[in-house]
């Protein structure tokens, strides 16, 4: 089976129910966060180049332009973390109510995301 077919199966939404959407989003955010991990370490190379290089990087990235990306990234983190918690509980066979748990954690995550986005906004803009 080709990679293209596999991507359709993993990320396609047709024929999936709620637990399937959770899987799609988990895999997607996992890949995004791993790529970001590499980017994060690459950016921090500036730390070794002294104060000016680092401060220039911060000046450029902690700005309203990058705020939407930051908010999306923190959303991906919250989702992957909370859904991951559900997966750990389910994969250890600790609950039958993983679907109900998805709703509860989803609600908590949404509230957390809104609050944290406000904090990010406050740091960057105010």
């Amino acid at each position: 089976m080709s990679l293209k077919n596999a991507i359709g199966l993993w990320f396609g939404l047709r024929g999936k129910s709620f637990t399937g959407y959770a899987f799609v989003l988990h895999r997607l955010t996992g890949i995004v966060l791993t790529i970001y991990l590499f980017l994060h370490l690459a950016f921090l190379t500036s730390l070794t180049q002294g104060e000016e290089a680092y401060t220039a990087l911060i000046r450029k990235t902690v700005t309203p332009t990058f705020l939407p990306f930051d908010i999306l990234l923190v959303g991906a983190t919250i989702y992957h973390g909370l859904n991951g918690l559900r997966l750990v509980i389910a994969e250890f066979g600790l609950t039958r109510y993983h679907k109900e748990l998805l709703w509860v954690l989803g609600l908590i995550g949404l509230i957390l995301w809104i609050y944290v986005s406000y904090l990010l906004y406050k740091i960057v803009v105010v």
């Binding site: 129910s17 637990t19 899987f23 389910a90 250890f92 066979g93 039958r96």
Partner: peptide
Amino acid sequence: HFMAECSEVCPKEVDPAKAIQM
């Protein structure tokens, strides 16, 4: 990876997803 759709579609409520985790 516990997508758990197998248990959703099972007409006999076998819950294969649970079985695999066990």
